[in-house]
Design a protein around this nucleic acid. Structure first.
Lengths: 249, 249
DNA sequence: GCATAGCGTTCCACAATGCGGCATGCTACT
DNA sequence: AGTAGCATGCCGCATTGTGGAACGCTATGC
């Protein structure tokens, strides 16, 4: 059950996305594959409408617009997305910190789906599409805290990878932290994943209480003031609640 | 140069996107392909991370978050996207009409990449990822008007498909219309493509004057008042100019 | 409680399919 | 003119994906 050509084509597509606009030769160097193989793949992807030649240099390839019609269920019709946008901007205006909207991907991790930037010279950066672990991020914990016990166990069952001093790697400790998250309504990440990056996050739920996404305010360590935490947490949680309400309406 | 399995896999991916969460059986009925073929394709796409099983019903498939990392060049790093967002919301607030951001796709047509809805009960609807023809839409004309002569000829060379009474199908007439668009700074579509749908659009340009995208206010025929056109056009053009300025900054 | 229908999944022999080394033609420097 | 690097075209071989058929399961109906 392999479908080598399909697997390879998708990896080529991802490579084009990262390096666009890119030439055949550059891709052969990235993959170490024969030129004819890469070339054939590109032509096929182009015929399918997923790739197109750059308008200025027709030997360079870039991603076609077809991909935009293919989006995760949580964003279909973009109702969650649209519901989140204005509250996110207001939250950014209130805090002047970068705000992220992330969705869980099959319990593998959180994926950033939208972002509103702050205007500080020093700011955190996560591109749309970036993934991060559930157990070591504020957004991940916010979602995790509102899953069923069986699902929490599923995640805490495997080894919890550590990313530094602060990462919670003990399943028991993580479960205790998730309880606190549930009680106070927001999750906090203080250097648990990326060094120097902190975040405060709250979940967006559907009608049945299942977490669909998380809103997070992400800021550098240097601006993180523990005293302001209750206030920030409250604002983030209110924003998440507003998105939940708008999304259901 | 065919790569049948790749082409089919991508079509399956698109079908999953449209019907998610979807089962193997439903897909076999859509495509009329053998079950084993569809099944194999799904497993392969899943292994590549582009598909995942639904959490509640594990025999249903949906789009994975991996696709979000694959975006057209114009949206990479989402700077255009981010630059457009707030001006679009302000324009929506000013007009209370649905605002679209569209990018041209290899001179094939315009693709909707973002949307801000109005709150009228009667409103136009275009999903993100939808495509429409360059010669019969306001967004298309806005972009077309700012392309080089050779590119305009390229588009006006083929037959211009008609979609109703109002569509401009004569290349000469279209070129004249594009001149007017350039002069007044915005394009207008009055029932030229979809019946009952009108729009006013203006282009977002890069540093060299090449059109990257178009902002459009889209409204039902019933609310279209020719008297207000200069005012609406001015507001749309100002919004596009602001997005251009923010994007360059 | 047995029969049936429909589902997702697995298996396997066949041959169609994509593979990749090689050759070509192009453009751009030197 | 010569060379280097590029994208692209060709074609025989064997690897690869194909799809019919069989399996096991669950739900529905008699």
């Amino acid at each position: 059950m392999e479908m080598k050509s399909v697997t390879r084509s998708l990896r080529v597509l991802e490579a084009v996305a990262r390096h666009q606009p890119v030439t055949v030769g550059e891709l052969t160097r990235i993959f170490g594959l024969p030129k004819s193989t890469v070339q054939r793949t590109l032509v096929t992807l182009n015929e399918a409408g997923w790739l197109r030649a750059n308008r200025k240099d027709t030997t360079r390839w870039e991603i076609g617009a077809r991909v935009l019609a293919v989006r995760p269920a949580a964003l279909q019709g973009s109702s969650l997305f649209a519901a989140a946008r204005e509250p996110m901007i207001r939250l950014r205006d209130a805090l002047n910190e970068t705000i992220h909207l992330s969705v869980p991907d099959a319990l593998q991790g959180m994926v950033v789906v939208d972002r509103v930037d702050c205007d500080h010279a020093v700011r955190t950066y996560h591109a749309i599409g970036d993934t991060s672990p559930l157990h070591a991020t504020a957004a991940g914990n916010a979602v995790l805290a509102h899953l069923g016990k069986s699902e929490i166990d599923e995640v805490t069952a495997g080894t919890l990878e550590g990313y530094g001093e602060e990462t919670i790697t003990d399943p028991g400790q993580l479960r205790a932290e998730l309880c606190r998250v549930r009680e106070r309504g927001y999750a906090v990440n203080h250097n648990q994943y990326l060094q120097g990056v902190c975040a405060i996050a709250a979940p967006v739920l559907d009608g049945e209480g299942t977490p669909l996404a998380a809103v997070a305010a992400s800021l550098p360590d240097s601006r993180f003031e523990p005293v302001r935490l209750p206030e920030l947490g409250r604002l983030v949680a209110e924003t998440a609640a507003e998105i939940t309400a708008r999304h259901l309406a």
